[in-house]
Design a protein around this nucleic acid. Sequence first.
DNA 1: CTTAAATAAATTGTCGACAATATTAATGGC
DNA 2: GCCATTAATATTGTCGACAATTTATTTAAG
Lengths: 234, 234
Amino acid sequence: MALVNPTQPQAVTTADKVFEQIQHAIVEGHIPAGSKISEPGLAKQFEISRSTLREALNRLEKCHLVERKANVGSRVVDCSIEGLLEIYVVREALEGMACRQAAENMSEQEIAELKSVLAQHAKSQDLKDGVSYYQEEGDLDFHYKVIVGSHNQQLINILCGQLYHLVRMYRIQFGMNSPRATRAFDEHLHIVEAIADRDGELAEILMRRHIAASRKNIEKKIALQSAHSSTEDN
Amino acid sequence: MALVNPTQPQAVTTADKVFEQIQHAIVEGHIPAGSKISEPGLAKQFEISRSTLREALNRLEKCHLVERKANVGSRVVDCSIEGLLEIYVVREALEGMACRQAAENMSEQEIAELKSVLAQHAKSQDLKDGVSYYQEEGDLDFHYKVIVGSHNQQLINILCGQLYHLVRMYRIQFGMNSPRATRAFDEHLHIVEAIADRDGELAEILMRRHIAASRKNIEKKIALQSAHSSTEDN
DNA sequence: CTTAAATAAATTGTCGACAATATTAATGGC
DNA sequence: GCCATTAATATTGTCGACAATTTATTTAAG
C-alpha cells in the first residue's frame, strides 16, 4: 500500500529505518514543525548512537525536512504559508514539464496503468464525497505516476525524492482536505487524455493549470482565514 | 570573484572545507566521473577521519555529485549524454519559472544590477570573440542573478544549491566552450527587457527558449560527434 | 535593578575502534 | 580446466569518547 519511492530503495541499514521513522513523525507532526532537534535526545529515544542519528538527519536534510546550522544544530523546517506557495510554484514548473515528458515517453502499458488508477478513483468517487483522505492519497498517487512516467531521472529525484514528503507535511499540518475533489478528478481525466494523445504541450499546460488552481485555492483559503481572524481581532 | 552561494553559507567546519575541495576536484575532473570513492583512501589523503569525510560525502550527495549505495560505497556520478539532457530539461522548467518570478519580484535595484552585469559583458564582448571561458562564467553569472531574483527560496535552493555544480561539471567535462556566445548574449538582453517590463509570461518563455536552444545545440553537437565517430569506425 | 563579563553546562564536530557486510582470493569437486 | 563453495581480505556501518564551540548560568560592576 505504501508508495514505494523508486529513488530511495528499500531501507536496509538502521540509519535508513530511523530516517523513515523520523520522516514519518515530522510529516505527521508528531515532531512539531520548527522545533529544535536534540541529537543526544533523539539518539537515546531511538536507542542508537549519535553517529547513526546524524546519518539519518543528513537524509532528512536532503528532502528538506530539517535544516542544519554549523555548530548550532538541526531544526525541523517551519511550515509557513510563503513556503507552501513557493513549493506550489516549483511543482507547477516541474510537474508541468514532467507531464510533458510523460506524454512523450510513457509506454502504452504505463498509460494503461494510469488510466486504471483513475478508473479506480472514479468507482469510489460517489461514496467518498465527504471523506477526502482517500482522494488525497489518490491525488498523490496520480501525480506520482505521471512523474515517474516522465522517465527523467532528475525530475523523479527532485519531485519524488525531495519534495514529495514536504508536500505531504504541508498538506497534513495545514489540514488540507481538498474541497476540489471532484474538479481535481476531472482535471486528472483531461491530463490523461492529453498524455494518451501524446500531446506534450497540452499535457504540460493542463498540469500547470491543475497545480496553479490548487495554489490559488489555497491562497483564497488563506485570505479568508486571515480576514476572519482580523474580524475576530476587532 | 567566486560566486558565493546564498544557500550554502561560509564553510566553517573542516567537513565543509573538505566538501568544497572534493566538490571542486570532481567538477574539474581531477576525481574522474563514475569512479569509486574509497573512504579510507580519501580520508587519509585529506588527513581527516572517516566520519568527517562521510559528512562531506553526504553534502556531495545533496548536490548530486556522488551517489551512495548501502554497504557498497560511494561513486562519483557518471556524465552521460542522457543525464546532461535531463538536466537541461529540468533547468528549462525551473529557470523558466524563476525568470517569471524574477520579473514579478525583483527590486528595481536588482534589475539595475542585472543590467550592469550585461553591460560589462557587452564591453568585453569584442575582445573575447574566440575566448569563450569568460562568457561561460558570465552566462552562469547572469542565470544566477535571475534565479536569486525570483526570491523563491525553493527555486534558489534547487538551482543554485543542487544543480549549479552539476551543470558546471558537465560543461567542463564535455568541454563545452559554447559557440553560441553572441547569440546567447542577445537572448540575455531580451530576457532582461522582459523582466524590466515586469512581463513574467514573456520572461518565462524567453528563458525557456534560451535554455532549450542550448540543449538543442548540444544535441546537434552530439549527433555530429556520433556521426563522425561512426564514419571513423568504418 | 540592569547590564557585562566570566564561568559552567550542554551540544555539536571530530576521532579511532569494533561489528556487519561485501568483495576478492583460495580451495575443492566435477 | 571451469564452476561452486569456502576462507580471507577489505570496506562500510555503528559505536562511544574526546575536543571545540555554543548556550545557559552565575558573578560582578555600574
